[in-house]
Each structure stands twice: as C-alpha cells, then as structure tokens.
C-alpha cells in the first residue's frame, strides 16, 4: 500500500494549486494515505490551505528561517528526513519541483520519474519524451522509495473540503549555507496566473511588437484571461519569458486557449495539448496550429481581435 508524501509548493504565504494536482495523481494510484509537507519560515497559513484539500490525511510542517525561500539544497535533506516511512515522494513538475525532486532522489539513491502524465499503477506511469512526440510507460522498482514529479496539466486540482491534521516536525539537522537567495523579479500583474487560469489568450510572432501586444492584453482583460506567448514572441522581446507557453516554458491546461498570431511549432503545441478548447487565429490558413485547433479563423489579427472584443459586449 502506498503512503504518499507531497512536497508543497508555495510562494508569499500562498499554496500553489500544483499541490492539489499532486493529490489527484496520488489518488489515481489509490494511495492509502496522503501527507503534504510544508517547508517554510512560517508555514501555518500554507498548512491550513493544504489541510483543506480533500484527500489529504495529514499536513507536516517544518518552520525554519532557512526555509524562507525554496532552495533545493536546503529543502532536499529535510524532505529525505521527513520521508522516512513513506513509499512515495511527489512534487509538481514546475520549476520548483524539477529543481528539488532529483536532489531528493539522489540523496535517497533512487531513480526519479519525471513528468507523470498518467497513472497505470503505484509504480507504473506514462510520461512524455522527445518534447511530447512519444509517450513512454515506465516501471519503477516497488522496493524503493518512488520519487517523481507530476505533470500538473494532466491532473485536475483536488477539490477543497478536507480537514487534515497539522503536525509540526522538529528536524534537527545542519543545513547548507552555500546557496543564498538574492531576489525574485516578478512581472507585476493583477491578471490571473498563467499556470492555473481557466482562460488564456496567447500571442505569437504574428503580433509583431511589444507595443502591438496591447491587443492581446485587451482581449485577455475582456475575458478575465491570463496572457501567454509563444517562444518566438518571447525571443523577439515582445513579452517577458515567464509568459512563455510550451515545452520549454509553461505547460498549461486551461478550459479556453486562444492562440493569436501563433503558427504552432511543435514545442508550443506540447504546452497546450491538454487545453479544453483551442481557438486559433492566424492569417496563414496553412499554419500547423489549425491542425490541432478546435476552432480556427483565418484573417488579420489586428482586425479580428478588436471585433471579438466588440462582439463580447
């Protein structure tokens, strides 16, 4: 039977929805128990959020000023200590989890499964390789701790409604000081978060300039949507890199995805293939984006996008 420990991702005192997605993944292999580990300076608020996720049995907290920022070299030995008695350690396949999970696995001397996209059993999973151009089935040994990252777009967030107990762990160990947080530069935005938004409007090279991106922002605001971009648009300097959607950027699964002026390179398509409805607007009717779009419209985005806004009233 599986006892699962999920490492919570959080920032500025708020739990990331990726944690609830890991809970759904654990439930998919009928985990006997699910615990969430919160490493933080002051973990109480995040722990309370985690305790309210349906399906979570226990929340473990480690309060330590050294845990103020998610530094993998600092977190990993604490996770290893907390993971004793657990059969599985899961983290989301976000930059947080990707940074941390291999460090945990190496300390435990076990292999790690990256990007669980589907669950076939407690030790058997499907995951994408070659930028999503092939899906492999991997089997991990059942006699070792299973460390894995969970592809968050593949699992819905577990609902609220839980009331798990919260237990403070007292880990006494020396933590490294060789890695120091300096700052986090965040694009300031009151728009919805790209990773978890239910609607996303993305612009590509076809938008043409940073100034022109205003049309994307305007439509997004009208829809209450997050803004994304293709790698081409990021590389051209139209928008900052944290808006990039695709294999090397964010992999997302909104209910509505609008790709505007995006031709649809394979690496972009990998990032959106779990989206509910994909709308593509492009002046080139032969663009690959139309091969996977649910609704396609050929034409000039600078004419069509304002029209859509107007039609939405």
């Amino acid at each position: 039977m599986s006892k699962v420990l999920i490492v919570a991702e959080h920032l500025n005192g708020k739990l990331n929805s990726s944690t609830a997605r890991c809970v759904t993944c654990a439930k998919a292999f009928n985990a006997e128990s699910v615990a969430v580990l919160v490493l933080a300076d002051a973990p109480d608020a995040v722990a309370a959020e985690a305790a309210a996720i349906a399906g979570v049995d226990k929340v473990l907290t480690v309060a330590n000023p050294a845990n103020t920022h998610a530094i993998a070299a600092v977190y990993a030995p604490q996770v290893v200590a907390a993971a004793q008695g657990y059969s599985h350690v899961l983290a989301p396949s976000t930059t947080f989890g990707k940074d941390l999970a291999p460090r945990i696995a190496a300390l435990l001397g076990v292999a790690q499964v990256s990007d669980i996209a589907d669950v076939l059993g407690a030790y058997t999973f499907k995951r994408p390789i070659y930028a999503g151009n092939a899906i492999v089935t991997v089997e991990a040994p059942a006699d070792a701790t299973l460390v894995a990252t969970v592809r968050t777009a593949s699992f819905a967030a577990a609902a609220a409604g839980g009331s798990a107990t919260v237990e403070a762990l007292n880990l006494t160990m020396e933590l490294p000081t060789h890695t120091r947080f300096v700052e986090l530069q965040q694009g300031k935005s009151d728009r919805p978060d790209l990773q978890s938004a239910s609607r996303v409007v993305s612009g590509g090279r076809g938008v043409g300039s940073a100034e022109n991106f205003a049309v994307i922002y305007k439509l997004a605001d009208k829809l209450g949507a997050a803004v994304g971009a293709s790698r081409a648009a990021v590389d051209a300097g139209y928008v900052p890199s944290d808006l990039q959607v695709g294999q090397t950027g964010k992999i997302i699964a909104p209910e509505l995805y609008m790709a505007i002026g995006i031709s649809g390179a394979i690496q972009h398509l990998t990032g959106i293939k779990d989206a509910g409805t994909i709308v593509a607007i492009n002046k080139d009717g032969e663009a690959p984006i139309f091969e996977i779009a649910d609704i396609g419209l050929v034409g000039d985005l600078f004419t069509l996008v304002p029209e859509i806004e107007a039609a939405l009233g």
Binding site: T95, V182, E183, L184, Q186
Partner: peptide, 10 residues
C-alpha cells in the same frame, strides 16, 4: 528562469 519570474541566487 522560474515559473514566477526570474530568481537570483548566489
């Protein structure tokens, strides 16, 4: 390059 933006560490 992290999901939240750009993180600087020493």
């Amino acid at each position: 390059e992290v999901d939240a933006g750009l993180e600087v560490i020493d």
